[in-house]
Structure formats: structure tokens, C-alpha cells
Amino acid sequence: MLKAIRNRWQRWVNRRIPRSDQRAFGQRNIFILPTGAGVVFAILLLIMLITGINYQNSLIYLLTFLLGAIVVAAMHQTHRNLSGLELTLIQAGEGFAGDMIPFRLRAVSPRHDTLALSLSCDDTVLDQQHIPSGQQADLNLAIPSYRRGYLQPDRILVETRFPFGLFKAWSWLRPVTSGIVYPNPLAAPEVFSTVQDGEEQSKSRSIDGNDHADIRPWREGDMSQRVQWKRYARTGEMVIADWEGEQGSPHWLDYEAFAGVDRELRLGYLAHQVIGRSRSNSRFGLNLPGQVIEPDTGAAHTNRCLRALAVFGLEQPREGGPLPYGTRAGESTRSGGRAGTEGVA
């Protein structure tokens, strides 16, 4: 019974507050109720009123009605404090699974100061924010992530209890833009890429005596089969042979190289490899089923590869069917539990 009531309430709120990255709060979408302190205060006023009636004491009447007027004024001020506020999501952050993903919001209060504003999502609270009249303020709310994928908060609670904490006025922002959660990096076993390109052709060449090979020191992330072990045995110096300099065989990070491994493990291995190649500034490409990212270097290339791993096999959340926190709960339901077995190659 309670679950049915809660579901009907949520559907009503979702119709009243549709998904949008921008929300102006007003009469239609602000809710207000007394807090626990407000309820206790109202009970005390009622007791004072009954006492005044019983003893016909004018001073008790005066104090009761004075405090009652303050309560009414506080209710209007609490509602007014949130009314007119404009909140916009301007940037959804990125990070690894388990991290706090930052969401950057811009608050504007065109008509009056907004005091003691609070934003929250799950257990994360951004408290006591003040927005001066006619100015804007950027607020950063960190939202926890649990799994890779799209991070789309169902609701960001916006509330205020100013001035006396007797009433709580609140509403929600239901953003459309999603954050990106990368797979949790896992130390990858050493495997051989299945990509047939210049690197595969280079394996058939003889390293010793090749006039077209560039010799460079070994860096973290280099594959062991490219180390000149004979030279290492003679000199103790670990070096790598790169054919044709920068135009030589790139390192391919290959999804298909981890045969027989669950999909989420494969993505974790690839994320670890991407980070390793990025730290060593090595040239690498990423081969995923249905998507190939050509070899390159740099922060932008690394970010592109991590994003591809984060959203691999997932649908972007849409209005009416969001995938909360990067999970595949909705997709698993639609596919009849197929997601639990499809990750095995």
C-alpha cells in the first residue's frame, strides 16, 4: 500500500517537474511543510492559547498572537527565499567507478537574496549556500558513483529552511545531461593483440640488425615481446625497438585479446592499460567491437578512450527510462536477465 502511494507520488512529481537541465522555481513547483521544530512550536502555541483562554490572561493572548504572526511571516519568507531562483546544470563531471562525480550548477537569484540554500543527492549535501540578488554563483555537488556508465541523478533536492527553521521549502532539479563513469582499472594480464596491422607485421622482422628500427628506453606499459632481451643480457639495459620511428607499429589495446573473460573485467583491464599508456606517453589505439579508435597520444585521446570504455554496451539515459548510476537494471529487465551471461566471450 505504501509502495503504491509512493509510486503515485513520484509519478505526479515527475509530471509536474519534467527532466531539464534548467529550472526556475516558482508557485507551481515549490513545496512547503513545517519541520519538526515547526510542529513542536505550533503545539506550544496551541497550549499557550488554551492556557490564555482558561485563565483569561491578556498577556498570554498577546504573546500567543505575536508568536503566531511571526510563524506566518516565517512561512511566507521561507517560500519567498526559494521563489524566483534559477538553477542550471552547466557541466556533468567524469571519473572512475567509486569516485565522487562533480556536477557543476549555476544558481541565479534575480529578484532578491537567496539565503541558506541547500543542495543534496543521496547522502551528499551542499549546505548553507548564499546567492546575492542579481548575481550568479557556481555550485559543485559531488555525487557518488557505483558502476561504470552514465550517471544521471534522478533528482537533486533543492531546499531552504531560512529564516527560523520552522518550515522547509523544497523542490527538485531533474537533469537530462549525464556524467560519465569510467570502469574501475584492474591490473591486466599480458596478452597479445588480435589486430592485424603494422605491429603484427613487425613481429616477423628480425630486430637485431634492422636499420629501420629506433631504439628507446623501456617505459611502463610496453609489451615484453618488444624488449631486446639479448641486449639486456649483454648490457643490463632494457630497451625497445620501434620500427620506422613514430610511424612504426602502434600498441593496440584490444577487447578481443582477453578471450574467455567477463565483459566488465575486460573493460577494467583496458582502462588500466589506457592509463598506463597515457602515463608513459605511448602511442596506442583502442579496438572495441563496433568501434575502433585510431592510435594517438595525449590527454584528449586518453579521455576519448576512457569514455568509450565507460559507455560500451550501454544506452544513453532518456526521459522516462533513465539508467541510474550507470547500472544496467533497466536493460537487464528488458532482456529477461540476458545481461548476466552475455559478458562471457
Results as ranks from 00 to 15, higher is better:
residue 3 K to T: 06
residue 5 I to G: 06
residue 5 I to W: 14
residue 6 R to E: 15
residue 7 N to W: 12
residue 8 R to C: 10
residue 8 R to S: 13
residue 16 R to F: 09
residue 17 I to S: 11
residue 19 R to A: 13
residue 24 A to L: 13
residue 26 G to L: 08
residue 27 Q to L: 14
residue 30 I to D: 02
residue 35 T to D: 03
residue 37 A to G: 07
residue 38 G to W: 05
residue 38 G to L: 09
residue 39 V to H: 12
residue 41 F to G: 05
residue 43 I to A: 15
residue 47 I to N: 03
residue 50 I to D: 05
residue 51 T to N: 02
residue 51 T to A: 11
residue 54 N to A: 12
residue 54 N to Q: 07
residue 55 Y to E: 03
residue 56 Q to L: 09
residue 59 L to I: 15
residue 67 L to E: 04
residue 67 L to K: 01
residue 68 G to C: 06
residue 75 M to L: 10
residue 75 M to G: 04
residue 77 Q to N: 06
residue 83 S to L: 05
residue 85 L to R: 02
residue 86 E to W: 01
residue 88 T to C: 13
residue 91 Q to F: 01
residue 91 Q to M: 05
residue 93 G to R: 03
residue 94 E to K: 06
residue 95 G to R: 00
residue 97 A to Y: 04
residue 98 G to K: 07
residue 104 R to K: 13
residue 108 V to L: 11
residue 113 D to K: 07
residue 113 D to Y: 08
residue 115 L to I: 14
residue 115 L to G: 01
residue 121 C to F: 08
residue 122 D to C: 05
residue 123 D to V: 10
residue 124 T to A: 13
residue 138 D to E: 15
residue 139 L to G: 02
residue 141 L to H: 04
residue 145 S to V: 07
residue 146 Y to G: 14
residue 146 Y to E: 14
residue 148 R to V: 07
residue 148 R to M: 02
residue 149 G to C: 11
residue 151 L to T: 06
residue 151 L to F: 09
residue 151 L to I: 04
residue 156 I to G: 02
residue 158 V to S: 10
residue 160 T to A: 03
residue 161 R to E: 13
residue 161 R to D: 06
residue 161 R to V: 08
residue 166 L to M: 12
residue 167 F to L: 00
residue 168 K to N: 09
residue 171 S to D: 01
residue 173 L to D: 00
residue 175 P to D: 09
residue 176 V to D: 08
residue 181 V to C: 11
residue 183 P to W: 04
residue 185 P to H: 14
residue 187 A to P: 02
residue 188 A to K: 03
residue 188 A to S: 12
residue 191 V to R: 00
residue 192 F to I: 14
residue 196 Q to S: 08
residue 197 D to H: 06
residue 197 D to T: 03
residue 200 E to C: 07
residue 207 I to N: 05
residue 209 G to E: 13
residue 211 D to I: 13
residue 211 D to G: 00
residue 213 A to T: 03
residue 216 R to S: 12
residue 217 P to E: 10
residue 217 P to D: 10
residue 219 R to V: 08
residue 221 G to N: 04
residue 223 M to S: 14
residue 227 V to W: 01
residue 228 Q to D: 15
residue 229 W to F: 10
residue 231 R to E: 03
residue 234 R to N: 09
residue 234 R to Q: 15
residue 236 G to F: 01
residue 236 G to V: 05
residue 242 D to Q: 13
residue 243 W to D: 03
residue 244 E to K: 02
residue 244 E to Y: 09
residue 244 E to I: 02
residue 245 G to N: 10
residue 246 E to G: 06
residue 249 S to G: 06
residue 250 P to E: 01
residue 252 W to A: 02
residue 252 W to H: 03
residue 253 L to G: 00
residue 255 Y to E: 00
residue 256 E to A: 10
residue 267 L to W: 00
residue 267 L to R: 00
residue 271 A to V: 04
residue 272 H to M: 03
residue 276 G to P: 00
residue 277 R to K: 15
residue 277 R to V: 08
residue 278 S to T: 15
residue 283 R to A: 04
residue 284 F to N: 05
residue 285 G to Q: 06
residue 293 I to C: 05
residue 294 E to T: 13
residue 295 P to C: 00
residue 296 D to T: 02
residue 296 D to V: 04
residue 298 G to Y: 10
residue 299 A to M: 11
residue 303 N to I: 14
residue 306 L to D: 10
residue 316 Q to Y: 14
residue 317 P to N: 10
residue 318 R to Y: 09
residue 320 G to I: 11
residue 324 P to E: 12
residue 326 G to A: 06
residue 327 T to H: 11
residue 327 T to C: 12
residue 337 G to C: 13
